[in-house]
């Protein structure tokens, strides 16, 4: 049972996953980068990115997903996202107060506009995506551990 579980699902599922997981990841990145001009943003984009890795893990087993994004890298990305968000907020003190929008706003309705909002979106998406991936990995490992104990 455990060996089959680690080997993943059947050939059809693996092939479909190989074709679609890149598109899901790309769609998540699109959602998070365009968060300030269209619906979406850091939260939804981060969850979609996490779902692409979870899709990979469900189809191929956990070794393949850990090869792409290991547990240590996930926790590093989550802490890094939090620290990056806080640093963006703190650097507003260079012009006055906390969370000051200190970068030039640029022309509206373009991709590179709105000052610190795209940077904050990227930081929050790192945090949310890596955190949810870590939660899912923890729950999966709990299940396999309880099985090993029963045996």
């Amino acid at each position: 049972m455990s060996k089959e579980h680690q080997a993943g699902m059947s050939l059809i599922v693996k092939t479909i996953t190989r074709l679609t997981v890149g598109l899901i990841l790309l769609y998540g990145i699109y959602i998070l980068l365009h968060g300030h001009i269209s619906p979406g943003g850091g939260f939804a984009g981060g969850v979609i990115v996490a779902l692409s890795f979870i899709h990979l893990m469900l189809a191929y087993g956990k070794e393949m997903a850990f090869k792409k994004l290991s547990k240590g890298a996930a926790s590093f990305l989550e802490s890094g996202g939090a620290i990056m968000f806080l640093l963006i907020a703190l650097s507003g003190f260079s012009g006055g107060y906390f969370f000051l929008n200190f970068i030039n706003k640029g022309e509206p309705f373009r991709l590179f506009s709105a000052g610190i909002i795209p940077l904050c979106n990227i930081a929050i998406s790192f945090k949310v995506g890596a955190g949810l991936f870590a939660i899912f990995v923890a729950l999966v490992l709990l299940k396999t551990n309880s099985k090993e104990k029963e045996r």
Binding site: F43, V47, V128, G131, L132, I135, A138, L139, L142
Partner: peptide
């Protein structure tokens, strides 16, 4: 509400982890 939804997911995951621990 946008922030509350994501917090709700994390809280649900915490509850599920506690439930699985109790079952174990």
């Amino acid at each position: 509400v946008l922030t509350a939804i994501v917090i709700g997911l994390a809280t649900t995951a915490l509850l599920a982890a506690i439930a699985m621990r109790i079952y174990e």
